[in-house]
């Protein structure tokens, strides 16, 4: 009886899924019509960002990105609250070998520079604030793994995080005050394909980069403190 109901249920769901997907034409190029074409044609003139993905993420859908940043912040805060313990467990892992330690010391600054490059050039090349922040956090993870006694200052991290988040909101409010809407562009667009172009996009992405980097680093440190 239960199996019969399950089969019936599956068939029901399958029928409606199939009929929905059959409505979507298969193998037809749909990029060059509707809103996609609009972004491709007008994106560069309207936003000044050579990287169209960034122009959509930070300019056209800037409010959505602010929501994403907030979600990440809430997730990090929730994780910190769940894992919080007054006496952090002493890390009993073995020390990494000398080779790993030396290598980590050499690679760490290079990784940080790469992360900064990725978020500063977010409006020109693939990547942006989120990716750059994640690269920076991975650099800190390398140091956590190699040096047992490597600690980060959580007070500084949370200051960086909250001020970067405030910068994002303040830029948005300035757009509301001097421009047409929240997060509207208020700076000159400059020439496309140069570092100082695309108005407020680089500023927002630098703020997002700092925020994501600080958040993920703090998260990694909190998680490592719960591991023996």
């Amino acid at each position: 009886m239960r199996k019969a109901i399950a089969v019936l249920f599956l068939g029901f769901i399958g029928y409606y899924l199939l009929s929905t997907f059959l409505l979507v034409p298969f193998g037809v190029v749909r990029v060059l019509e509707g809103v996609g074409l609009k972004y491709l044609q007008d994106g560069l003139q309207q936003t000044g960002a050579a990287n169209l993905v960034t122009s959509i993420v930070v300019n056209y859908r800037g409010f959505d990105t602010l929501g994403e940043v907030t979600v990440l912040f809430l997730a990090a805060t929730g994780m910190g609250a769940l894992l919080y313990s007054k006496r952090p467990t002493e890390r009993a892992r073995q020390n990494a070998s000398v080779i790993v330690k030396t290598g980590a010391r050499i690679l760490f600054p290079l990784i940080i520079i790469l992360g900064a490059y990725v978020f500063i050039h977010g409006h020109l090349t693939p990547g942006g604030g989120f990716q750059g922040g994640a690269i920076i956090a991975s650099g800190f993870l390398l140091m956590f793994m190699s040096y047992r006694t490597y600690h980060v200052n959580h007070v500084i991290l949370s200051r960086v995080e909250s001020s970067a988040g405030s910068v994002f909101v303040i830029i948005g409010l300035l757009g509301l005050a001097y421009g047409s809407s929240f997060l509207a562009n208020i700076l000159p667009l400059g020439t496309a394909n140069t570092l100082f172009s695309a108005g407020v996009i680089p500023l927002i992405y630098v703020a997002v980069g700092f925020k994501v980097g600080a958040e993920l680093t703090a998260l990694l440190d909190t998680m490592l403190q719960t591991v023996k």
Binding site: A96, S97, I99, V100, G103, I106, L107, L110
Partner: peptide, 16 residues
């Protein structure tokens, strides 16, 4: 240079 630095170190850490 980056590959020459990182690849042997990570494999060393894995093997160890």
């Amino acid at each position: 240079l980056f590959i020459l630095l990182s690849n042997p170190i990570s494999s060393h850490a894995l093997a160890r």
